[in-house]
Simulated assay, not measured.
Amino acid sequence: MPGLLHLDASARSTSFSRRLGARFADGWRAAHPGAPYVHRDLAADPVPFVDEAWTELCDELMRRRITDPRRYPEVVQTPAQRAAWAVVAPLLDELLAADVVLVATPMYNFTVPAALKAWIDQVTFPRMSLAGTRFVVVCARGGTYLPGTPRAAVEHAAEFLRDFLDGHFGVTDVELVTPELTNALVDPVLAGRRAEHEASVVDAEAAVDRLVAACSPAAV
């Protein structure tokens, strides 16, 4: 039975990324009653940054050419490494058990929040593959960074996630949903673009619904 891992990274308790992420998760769960579902709120319950013991685990995995996550515990030796592995193990188990990973995040200062980057670092190991896992990324952005816009070149959140997942994990099934211009609701400079923002949200909701339908049992 397919499983869903749902990550939230927004520092806001209510946000566009959380709202659209919940829309996907609710639709997916309705289409897969009883299927495994894990929700991890990385802002409310942040994972720690990696430490030196974590880097030692990575070094030893490379030395021994271990690429199978089931064998990772073999390299854990010292008390510090055991403490580092105690952080990693539940996060990695959730990731490896998921058929679909939903990442709901804002873009902060042109990139992903530190809380999401901390999770990524904790679960990323040398030559580790997640090929075959489907990723849905909902990334809300205060301005507009669509291809062809003046700031497209500094979009390092949604595109970073797609490039990273493909470049490191070999994941080719990454769907991006990017509601734009959310700051039009609060920034007077962008107030005249509120209609663009609202249209972007409508498009994002429709994209989420299409992705839910594509993940339904009838579609796979």
Score class of each variant (00 low, 15 high):
G3I: 10
P46I: 02
G132R: 14
T55P: 00
A98D: 08
L116C: 07
T111N: 12
A140W: 05
M128E: 03
P48Q: 01
P46T: 03
M128K: 11
S129Q: 11
L211G: 11
A104V: 08
D51Y: 06
T172H: 15
P36K: 00
E56N: 07
A25I: 04
V186P: 01
G27Q: 09
R71Y: 05
R40C: 06
P36I: 00
A118R: 03
Q77D: 13
L190Y: 01
Y37N: 07
Q81I: 07
C215W: 14
C215A: 15
A195I: 00
A44D: 13
P126V: 12
V154S: 12
M107N: 01
S17T: 05
L7M: 12
L92M: 08
L20S: 02
H156C: 04
V100K: 11
A191T: 01
N183L: 15
F24N: 04
L95D: 04
P188H: 06
L91Q: 13
G3K: 07
D166V: 02
T111F: 05
T144I: 07
A22E: 14
F24D: 05
E175P: 05
T178C: 13
E180T: 03
A31T: 14
R12S: 11
Y145T: 00
G27V: 04
D41L: 09
A131V: 12
R151Q: 00
R65A: 14
H32C: 07
T178M: 14
S13R: 15
H168T: 12
A191I: 05
A213M: 09
R71W: 05
L161V: 10
P147Q: 09
T133H: 15
A9Q: 09
G170C: 10
P179L: 05
R63M: 14
N109C: 07
Y37W: 15
F110N: 05
L4K: 09
E175W: 12
A191G: 02
R65C: 09
L96W: 10
L211N: 12
Y72F: 13
A114F: 12
A86I: 10
D68M: 06
L130K: 11
T182V: 01
E56F: 01
V202H: 02
T178Y: 03
T172M: 06
P90K: 06
S17M: 01
A11W: 08
V171D: 04
A9N: 11
M128N: 07
T133P: 11
D26G: 09
E74C: 06
E198D: 11
P126Y: 04
L185S: 04
P188M: 09
P46M: 04
V76G: 03
A152N: 14
A152G: 08
V88L: 01
D209N: 12
D121M: 06
L4C: 07
P217L: 07
R162L: 11
A31N: 13
V123D: 10
M107K: 04
L57N: 02
L190A: 05
F24E: 04
V88A: 03
V103A: 06
A104R: 02
F110E: 00
R29C: 04
R141Q: 08
V100Q: 04
L4W: 12
R65K: 15
A44P: 14
V208E: 01
S15V: 05
R64A: 02
A44F: 12
V47T: 11
C58F: 03
L185P: 00
L165G: 11
V177E: 02
D173E: 15
R64G: 01
A25M: 09
P33D: 04
A104N: 12
L96M: 14
V112Q: 09
V88G: 02
